[in-house]
């Protein structure tokens, strides 16, 4: 099985299968709805935040567990302070206007949202093409600002195994306490 998954076709099929389960799950989690996304930005519907936070808890615990077992390698992207902040702010503006995001927007098409199919998704393709043009110029300035390299929070704190589990415990506890508070308030 392992050699097949490592083959080119195996990887493509793996991607497709993971995508099918992912798409099924985001639809069941109401993430494909415009109302869920804009509802969070208006602080009226915390569904999307709950999905993301529980994905972080489960994902973080598993990934660090497998990392400590030595069967998984982290692949952090470079922390580019300038590009992360400015890009994030630009993303937020577009995200609020469109009410769809690159991954969930595909699911929105699937459930019959024509403003995603004809508007938001073609817009994202145009945005990607425009960025491909801009990259030629940005790579020598904006993309160099505040490059901290491929760092993780445990790296910065100098907390290797087993101390990063203290940090994981603190983050998970904070998320659980926060979600319980949301539930208690009926949010």
């Amino acid at each position: 099985m392992a050699p097949f998954i490592a083959s080119a076709t195996g990887k493509l099929l793996m991607g497709l299968s993971l995508g099918v389960i992912f798409g099924f799950t985001i639809h069941k989690s109401r993430m494909t709805r415009y109302e869920t996304i804009v509802g969070l930005l208006r602080l009226r519907d915390f569904t999307m935040l709950k999905v993301m936070l529980s994905a972080i808890v489960v994902g973080m615990v598993g990934i660090y567990f497998f990392k400590d077992m030595g069967i998984l390698k982290l692949s952090p992207k470079s922390a580019l302070v300038g590009a992360n902040i400015i890009g994030g702010l630009i993303f937020g503006v577009g995200f609020a206007l469109a009410g769809y995001c690159p991954t969930t927007g595909i699911g929105s098409i699937a459930e019959g949202r024509y403003d995603a199919l004809l508007g938001a998704i073609p817009g994202m393709l145009v945005g990607a093409a425009l960025y491909a043009e801009a990259y030629t110029y940005l790579r020598n300035n904006l993309l160099q600002w505040g490059d901290l390299g491929k760092i993780t929070i445990p790296d910065v704190l100098g907390w290797g195994f087993p101390y990063h589990w203290i940090l994981i415990f603190i983050i998970c506890t904070a998320i659980i306490v926060f979600c319980r508070a949301l539930q208690k308030r009926g949010m």
């Binding site: 993303f91 577009g94 145009v126 945005g127 990259y135």
Partner: peptide
């Protein structure tokens, strides 16, 4: 608005990598 939002969000997303 959906189209313009899509353009803007993807430009920002790629910039932030």
């Amino acid at each position: 608005f959906a189209f313009a939002g899509g353009v803007i969000l993807m430009f920002g997303a790629r910039m932030a990598d």
